[in-house]
Each structure stands twice: as C-alpha cells, then as structure tokens.
C-alpha cells in the first residue's frame, strides 16, 4: 500500500506545517527543506525583529545544513506585520538576504509564502497579473492534506503557548508533600528511582499517595536530576557523569517512554499545589528541548520560574534554549523525535 499523502498545492504545504510543529506558528519564519520532491526538516524561528539581515540569513543556512540531503528550501512567514514604507513585503531585507545565502549554499529558495492572521499569499511573485492573489486561511484548514492528516489522528494547537490549570486538589496536599519529604531526603536515591520507573510503565490513573511520594521526590535536587536522566537511561544510578545526556548528546531515546514521562509529569502538575510544580515543568521543558521543540521548552522553563522564582535548573535550561541551541539528538533525523511514529 502506498502510504504517501500527495501534496498538490501551496495550501497543502502550509497545511502540513502545524502538523509538523504541533502548533500554528505566530510571528515566525518556518523553513522546510526539500529533497527532490519530498520534504525533509521543518525549522521554526521567531521573526527577526532586531537581527541584522545577513547574520540572520547566515544562521538560518547553518541550521538548514542539518539536513544534509536538502536540495532546496521553502519558506513560510507567519506575521501580522505590514511592510515598512517603500517595501513590498514584511521583512523584505531579511527575505532577500535569505534568498542570497541559500543560493550560495546550493539549496535555493524554491518558493515562499506570507501567512497573516486573515489570509496567505505567495511572497515571491511580483506579477501584476493577479496570478498569486491572497487566499483565505480556510483554503489551508479545509485542504485535502489537513483533512487527511486529521483522519490519520494528527492534531495540533491552534496557537503556540502553554498553560496549566490552577491547583484544584485537596486542601491538605501541601501538608501531605511536606510530611513525605523527610523520608525522601533521608533515603538513598534508589527508592525514588524505583517508584518513578514503576509509574512510567503503568497505564493510566495514578493513585494520590503515589503522586504525593513522587512530588516529594522531585523536590530533592539530586534525586530530581536522577529522575530526569532515568527517563532517557533507566539504568543510571545517579546524575553524575550525565553531561552528555543532559545536553542531548550521544543518546537515542525511547520516545514512547519520553512521551509517557511528559504525560505523567502533567498528571503530577495537576496534583501539585503552586510552589511544587517547578521541577515537573522543568522536566517537561527539558524533554521538549530533546525533542527539538525549544519554544515549548522555553515556555515551560518560564512557567517553572513563575512557580518558583530563582529555580536554578530552569534558569540554566532557559539560557540554553535562548542561545539558539538545538539538542544534538534532535539534529539527527535518525535519532530525532517524530510525533507520528
């Protein structure tokens, strides 16, 4: 059976982007590498509000070079900005610099589109013949590809961003966690690791007592670090010698286990009063970083810092993604996360 979905129009390409990223981008440049007639990597960055055009274009070429099989590149600019006076399109100078840099890299820009909150249109066509007039966004969402992807179970957020509901659990939950803490602090790392390992192999519901014990475990910094590492390497007895693993270097994660860990952490956040959520938000963010979803990661690190101001691990990881770092594991197609496996 041929499992391919045929992309037959620019609307289909634009329809694919949210499925690839997991959300509809805003104020973003989204590049797609092409390998002959098939797509390779999808790369999203914030629009270059202050970056100098040539430097921005050079950085994008460096990132796009991660797809060593790329033969050409597509670009979609998502913005509500209007062109500056005398220019035909928003970010005109940046687009021109990107065109030049990609040409020089041997992966020319094959086509580009501008997506605004109300319509989309070709970004490169300057014909007055009316051949590339603006089209409604519905032509993307109602397109055949979007319908086909949804039929296959793919979904995405209508906008970027992350939020969690305020704590609505029992009033004595904080007291329960505090009561469990001395046992966790006085113990070795092993009992906490075993509980975490057991929960990650469970399906579905977590009982309140287990949730409280795990919440206490995550409050102890060295155990927290070990539990993070154990998502990727269940055998690690502690987080010592974990430099490469933390950076995402030289690892090939079990992505189903990573998905389960994020899901479990979300359940634990629901069970955690404010002030106890930072380690779990940091865990979800770090795993998002490993997945190549740095904007999702950054959202979580900021939420962690809002929950517990000065939370050092979240501060450091936020700095990591704020330097344009892509986790090495996410740079390699063979080891990278795929939403639809």
């Amino acid at each position: 059976m041929n499992d391919a979905i045929r992309i037959s129009s620019p609307a289909d390409i634009l329809g694919f982007i949210p499925h690839s990223l997991g959300f509809v981008p805003r104020e973003s440049f989204v590049f797609l590498t092409m390998r002959g007639k098939t797509l390779g990597a999808t790369l999203r960055v914030d629009v270059p509000a202050f970056a100098e055009p040539a430097g921005f274009a050079g950085s994008m070429v460096d990132y796009l070079a991660l797809d060593t099989q790329a033969t050409a590149v597509l670009l979609a600019i998502y913005t509500a900005s209007t062109p500056t006076l005398g220019q035909s399109r928003p970010f005109h100078d940046h687009v021109e610099a990107v065109i030049e840099a990609l040409e020089g890299a041997g992966t020319p820009l094959q086509d580009a589109w501008l997506v605004t909150p109300s319509q989309w249109q070709n970004l490169l066509c300057d014909s007055d013949a009316g051949c590339c007039s603006p089209e409604p966004l519905e032509s993307i969402t109602d397109g055949q590809l979007n319908a086909e992807m949804a039929f296959r179970g793919s979904s995405y957020q209508k906008a970027p961003g992350t939020s969690y509901a305020p704590f609505a659990g029992p009033a004595d939950r904080e007291e329960q966690i505090r009561h469990a803490l001395p046992g966790v602090l006085g113990a070795e790392l092993r009992p906490g690791r075993e509980l975490w390992a057991e929960v990650l192999t469970r399906d579905g519901w977590m009982d309140p007592q287990t949730a409280v014990e795990l919440l206490a475990c995550f409050q102890r910094p060295d155990l927290r670090d070990t539990l993070l590492c154990n998502v990727i390497d269940p055998e690690l007895p502690d987080a010592e010698e974990s430099a490469n693993l933390l950076m995402g270097e030289g690892i090939a994660p079990d992505w189903d286990r990573v998905d389960r860990a994020q899901e479990t952490a979300r359940d634990l956040i629901d069970a955690a009063p404010e002030g106890y959520r930072a380690p779990l938000l940091t865990l979800i963010g770090w795993l998002a970083y490993l997945k190549g979803q740095s904007s999702v990661a950054a959202d979580h690190f900021k939420l962690a810092l809002a929950d517990t101001p000065g939370y050092r691990l979240a501060e450091l990881m936020d700095q990591l993604v704020s330097r344009g770092t892509i986790a090495p594991v996410a740079k390699n197609q063979a080891t990278a996360y795929k939403r639809h496996r």
Partner: peptide, 13 residues
C-alpha cells in the same frame, strides 16, 4: 532566536 526543529515523517510527494 529560539529554534524548533521537526523531522516529522512526511511521506509527502
């Protein structure tokens, strides 16, 4: 800039 990358399987012609 914060960079997102996806290698989403796209058996897309």
């Amino acid at each position: 800039p914060i960079v997102d990358i996806s290698w989403e399987k796209s058996p897309l012609d």
